[in-house]
Amino acid sequence: MIHIDRYAYRSKLKKTDPMQKLFFAVLTLGMCLWADSNVISAAVLVLMGGITVFRGGTSLYFLMKLLAIPMSFLLVGVLTVAVKISEDPGIMLVSLPMAGVWVGISQQGLRDAGRLFLKALGSVTCLYYLSLSTPLVDMLSAFKRIGVPKLMVEMMGLVYRFIFVLFETAETIFNSQNSRLGYASLNSGYRSLGGLASTLFIRAYRRSDELYTALEARGYDGELNVLEEPYQRHWAGYFAPLAVNIILIVITLFLRQYEGGRLG
């Protein structure tokens, strides 16, 4: 999962203004949650997935694999929605009597579960669109522009940068312990793991000290001022996401009217 970032760097949408991408993803996500309709959720899934694959150049196979990750959580979660407890077995499709009540799956429950499932999948696709087209560095610059406190953005940037250094260090220590049979038995494994954790902590502390010194040498005065590379920026970039979402909202309203009329 740590390599999801590499796909973002390879995306053809990387050069696009991150603000536009953030706007598109968040707007569509919000719309998908608001609409709460199967048709719209499916449309968002296809739309955002399609843009990621065709405009961004991410392979469909990889996107499917990523979508399979939340699937297990989703299925378990959805199952609990589908299963209902009721005193009236008449509303159930399948049910079991249990301590005087009926536990089973009703048609309404099944419908709710299906809708929740699609809604969640559609929303996740919105986020995948963002993370597969926008490296974190670009995301941070967008955060800065929408007014997230500077300190927080800087912290996120440093955490992100040093996660990789930390991983590398941990891997080196682990390999050196492993090659000296540090994990040969359960007992020595625990001992080695403890050593790894404490060494890692000390290294991280020293690393932060060195970083501060190095920053100071380049004139650090409390703020990590950097210049971003210029992005391709265009007003039309905001127009297209807005138009797409307005169309989807209109469809939602139309569907509600239609369904409301039919049910009423």
């Binding site: 490296p135 974190l136 560095v137 940037g157 440093l158 992100y160 940068r161 970083l211 190095a214 920053l215 380049r218 004139g219 650090y220 005065d221 990590l224 001022n225 950097v226 210049l227 971003e228 590379e229």
Partner: peptide, 15 residues
Amino acid sequence: FSASVYQDVSFGPMN
């Protein structure tokens, strides 16, 4: 300190 080479190099001159 930065995950972007460009941003890292810009740090000194920005200061």
